[in-house]
Design a protein around this nucleic acid. Sequence first.
DNA 1: AGCCAGGACTGAG
DNA 2: CTCAGTCATGGC
Length: 219
Amino acid sequence: MNTVSSEDHVVKIFDELYSIYGSQNWWPGETQFETIVGAILTQNTSWHNVAKAIENLKSHKLLELNALVEAEPEFVKKLITPVGFFNVKYKRLKSVLDYLVSTELLKFSCEPVEELRDELLAINGIGPETADSILLYAFERPIFVVDAYTRRLFSRLGYGWMEKASYDEIQRFFMESLPLDTGLYNEYHALIVMHSKILCKKKPLCLDCVMTCLMRFEG
DNA sequence: AGCCAGGACTGAG
DNA sequence: CTCAGTCATGGC
């Protein structure tokens, strides 16, 4: 019988993942700006390809706000070619950069996170996951990032409703199940990604891994 | 040789 | 609102 609340279960799964993989030290990037650029470039794209694009930008001294906005569009597109969708992604990137240029960076540590989120979502090319990734990983605001891995893993851990649920519904579930904690949200999302893509490469998500988690939870 | 990657927008019904 | 089509490269 399962008398454990979903709150405890969600915490338990975190503890389990953390005990297996340890601290992930996300986001994989050195600067705030690099994190923002990476958040755009990684849309539906493997991080392996994004890392190459980031490296290209870095080696041309373009991984900096002013330098990148003023760079030649076609040249930037060439540098980010490995990520695919480079035309749309350049446009999205440019939209965000223009927004950052016209904005006081200070507001990101003052304004209510809901308002910042709405501003980011208003930018063409910024959807919920990208907005939340920027808020959480670049500006260290406490907001839970949901992605395809989150849906898939938790669907198989007893939360089948996530398969069809909206982004906001899933996010609400996690944030109501966990304390409001930037560090916790940071690690949790990173651990879900790590677990999903390193250990469970098989598709659908390796059932053995899921069973291992469940059994350890039961025990 | 396909299929998929740390999504989001658009247009059609 | 729901949903297929679109964007495009690289790894397996």
